[in-house]
C-alpha cells in the first residue's frame, strides 16, 4: 500500500528526514516511536502534503501512485488520513457540516451521488454511537473549545466517516488521560480491518497496549535505526530513548 524509499525532507531549510525507507501493507499496523525531534511528526506531515515540508530526495508511492504528484486533498481522496497531534479549531463551522463536506468530497471523487444533510445525519449518528460520542459533537464548531480528549476523539470520528485506506495517527495519545486513551484506542481498533492499514506515531509504549502493532520502528535523527515487534517498544519503555544505541 505505502512504499517509502530513502525519503529525505526538510522544514525551513533544515533537513529533518534523512533517509527513511518503510513499506506498509494492507492489514498491517506499524508503530513509529522515537524521542522529541527525531522526525516522527515531520514524516506524517510529508505524507499528508503539508506545504511547509520540502522534499529533498527519495520516493513515496501510495497504492502505486507517486504521492508527491498529488495535492493534499487528492491524497485524502486517495485514502490517506492524518489524525493530527494538534487538531485545528474552526470556530463557526459545525462538526456536522464539516464532516458532510468531507464525506461528500469522497463520494464525489468516487463518482457517487452526494448525500443530503438528513441522510448524512443517519450516517453520522451511527458512527458517533459506535465511538460513544454524545450528540453535542454534531452541532459544536470543529474542535473549538474541545478538551484534548474530545479533539482526539473527533479525529477518530472523522476517520470513521471517511474510512481511509491508510491512517497515520500522530501522537493521538498526547494529552489524554488513561480513560480517554482507552476510548480513543477502542475507536481506532473498531475501524481496523485487513483492508486498511495504520501508522501509529507515539512516544510511549502505553498506547501500544491498546493498539497492537505488527511492527515497531524507532526513529532517531531522521532515520529508522531499529525495527522489530512490540517487544522493541517494551525494551524502549524499560531503557529509554537515551539508550537507542543499544538497539541499533
Amino acid at each position: 500500500m505505502l512504499k517509502i524509499k530513502n525519503l529525505k525532507a526538510a522544514i525551513n531549510g533544515k533537513e529533518i528526514i534523512k533517509g527513511i525507507s518503510l513499506t506498509v501493507n494492507s492489514g498491517e499496523t506499524h508503530s513509529i516511536m522515537g524521542p522529541n525531534g527525531s522526525g516522527k511528526s515531520t514524516l506524517s506531515k510529508v505524507l499528508a502534503g503539508d506545504p511547509s515540508c520540502e522534499i529533498l530526495g527519495g520516493s513515496v508511492t501510495f497504492n502505486g501512485v507517486n504521492l508527491f504528484d498529488l495535492e493534499p486533498e487528492e491524497r485524502a481522496l486517495a485514502g490517506l488520513f492524518l489524525a493530527y497531534q494538534y487538531p485545528v479549531e474552526i470556530p463557526g463551522l459545525s462538526n456536522r457540516e464539516f464532516l458532510r463536506m468531507a464525506y461528500n468530497a469522497k463520494l464525489s471523487n468516487e463518482g457517487a451521488e452526494e448525500v443530503d444533510p438528513i441522510d448524512f445525519d443517519e450516517i453520522l449518528n451511527e458512527k458517533m454511537q459506535t465511538l460513544g460520542m454524545g450528540e453535542k459533537f454534531r452541532e459544536r464548531s470543529v474542535n473549538a473549545g474541545f478538551s484534548g480528549g474530545e479533539k482526539k476523539k473527533n479525529e477518530i470520528l472523522q476517520m470513521a466517516i471517511l474510512q481511509p485506506a491508510l491512517s497515520i495517527l500522530d501522537e493521538i495519545d498526547s494529552g489524554l488521560d488513561i480513560d480517554a486513551l482507552r476510548v480513543v484506542a477502542d475507536g481506532v481498533n473498531k475501524l481496523k480491518n485487513d483492508k486498511n492499514a495504520l501508522i501509529v506515531i507515539t512516544h510511549y509504549q502505553r498506547l501500544l497496549d491498546y493498539i497492537k502493532p505488527d511492527f515497531v520502528h524507532v526513529l532517531s535523527e531522521g532515520k529508522i535505526v531499529a525495527s522489530g515487534t512490540s517487544e522493541l517498544a517494551k525494551r524502549l519503555e524499560a531503557r529509554g530513548y537515551n539508550d537507542i544505541a543499544v538497539l541499533v
Partner: peptide, 16 residues
C-alpha cells in the same frame, strides 16, 4: 492557512 490545510487534508478542495 492551518485551517485551510486541515480541511484539504480531509479531501475538501481549496475553494470549498
Amino acid at each position: 492557512e492551518e485551517q485551510v490545510a486541515y480541511m484539504k487534508s480531509r479531501g475538501i478542495d481549496e475553494a470549498s
